[in-house]
Every structure is written in structure tokens, then in C-alpha cells.
């Protein structure tokens, strides 16, 4: 099990209410269970030390390493990694859609694993290597996964697209030999409304082929 029980429930809040942080910890437990079937995807668990420390409720200093760059921020502890990046760092490629670990539009790669950044607090992401869609381009050039998405028209409105690119990138970092069934599992934690799954399947398989070559 990846999730941890909140050890400090008695010290929290004072009024006995469940804080967003407690909730998210529970949610990440449930989500990681759901994602165990999806190859290459997992929800990062909070590091040992942050579970014991009591921070907030006011703003606290948070240092995030995003796409190799270090950012020092002042954030309320309840702010998710997704919201911190979108609202405080204007890094908006990752989208907020379901905001509760279902749709994958917020997928980032944290320490090599695809995670739902709506279900990870920013303070839990301290000290980790966070990669967003913005970090996948090298010298202004599209990544092979991005190019495969374009060639196979794996996007319509495009709102789910960055999440799918991140999920496919994490999947391909683990394995280069992909069957259609593995694509279904690897991208099964993301949702598209326009119905681009046909192109997405072709794109993932083609990217795998190109990256092998």
C-alpha cells in the first residue's frame, strides 16, 4: 500500500473537521489502488517526514523543482501541486478537469512516475523531480510522442491531450514494446470527451516504434 494513515489527526484543525490534506491523503490511497493496474502510473506517496510535521494553516514556504528549475513559493498547505503550478507559476499545460484523480488531464511525471497532480499537495512534492508537459520539449523541438499525436490526429479540442502525452511518455519510458492491450492499460487512467482514443492508440504504438528505431 502506498498511502499512509494520518498519524496526527488529533493535532489537526481543532474543530475536528477533516482537512483537505487529510482528504487528499485518503484519496491518494484510493487512487493508487485504482492505478496499480495501469502500467507505469502510480500516485506518489508523501515522504515520511512530511506526514509527521504540522504545517499551516497559513502560507508556508515551498520549494519545487519543476522541469529542472527551482521555484520558491509561499503556499497554503492545502494547495495541490496542480494548482500551485497553474495559479502561481503560470505553468498551465497540465489541466484541471475532474480535480479528484479520475481523468488524468493533470498528469505530471514525479520522480519518474506518472501521477495525478490534482491529488498530490504541493508541499508533498518538495524535493522531488517534477516534469510537466512544458518540460518534454527539447530545444523547442516536439518530443517523439507529441509528433506521433499530431501525425495520428490523437487530439481534437486538445484539453486532455497534455495529460495523454504525459501518460504515454511515462509508459514508453518503462517499455518500448507495446501491444494494443498494454496501450489500453497504460492510457486507461485518462479520459477524453471528443473521442480521440482511436488516434491515441495509433499514436502510442507509433511512438513506441519510432523510439525503438
Amino acid at each position: 500500500m502506498r498511502g499512509k494513515k494520518p498519524k496526527d489527526a488529533a493535532q489537526k484543525g481543532g474543530n475536528g473537521a477533516v482537512t483537505r490534506r487529510d482528504f487528499l491523503r485518503g484519496a491518494s490511497l484510493a487512487v493508487s489502488t485504482g492505478l496499480l493496474a495501469a502500467d507505469g502510473a502510480a500516485v506518489a506517496s508523501p515522504p515520511e517526514s512530511s506526514a509527521a510535521a504540522v504545517v499551516g494553516p497559513g502560507k508556508v514556504p515551498v520549494t519545487l523543482r519543476v522541469n529542472g528549475q527551482v521555484h520558491r513559493l509561499e503556499l497554503e498547505p492545502r494547495v495541490t501541486l496542480l494548482d500551485a503550478l497553474r495559479n502561481d507559476l503560470d505553468t498551465t499545460g497540465s489541466k484541471r478537469v475532474c480535480d479528484r484523480g479520475t481523468c488524468g488531464a493533470c498528469t505530471m511525471i514525479v520522480d519518474g512516475k506518472a501521477v495525478y497532480s490534482c491529488s498530490l499537495l504541493a508541499i508533498e512534492a518538495e524535493g522531488r523531480n517534477i516534469t510537466t508537459i512544458e518540460g518534454l520539449m527539447k530545444d523547442g523541438r516536439l518530443s517523439p510522442v507529441m509528433q506521433a499525436f499530431i501525425d495520428n490526429d490523437a487530439q481534437q479540442c486538445g484539453f486532455c491531450t497534455p495529460g495523454f502525452v504525459m501518460a504515454a511518455t511515462a509508459l514508453l519510458a518503462e517499455r518500448r514494446h507495446l501491444t494494443p492491450e498494454e496501450v489500453n492499460r497504460g492510457l486507461g487512467g485518462n479520459i477524453c470527451r471528443c473521442g480521440t482514443y482511436h488516434g491515441l492508440r495509433l499514436a502510442a504504438l507509433e511512438a513506441a516504434k519510432r523510439m525503438k528505431a
Binding site: 497553474r86 495559479n87 503560470d90 498551465t92 499545460g93 497540465s94 489541466k95 484541471r96 510537466t132 508537459i133 512544458e134 518534454l136 520539449m137 516536439l142 510522442v145 507529441m146 509528433q147 499525436f149 499530431i150 501525425d151 490526429d153 490523437a154 487530439q155 486538445g158 484539453f159 491531450t161 497534455p162 502525452v165
Partner: peptide, 21 residues
């Protein structure tokens, strides 16, 4: 013909209303 806004969308550079700061 591939959509001309494909690169902006697949790279996350496309700015939607939700992304306006």
C-alpha cells in the same frame, strides 16, 4: 492533412480560457 494547431495542443502551449492568468 494534419491539423495546424496540433503542435500547440500536443505540447501544452495552447492557452485555453482556463489557462489565462
Amino acid at each position: 492533412i494534419s491539423r495546424i494547431d496540433g503542435p500547440a495542443k500536443s505540447s501544452g502551449r495552447a492557452k485555453y480560457t482556463y489557462d489565462i492568468n
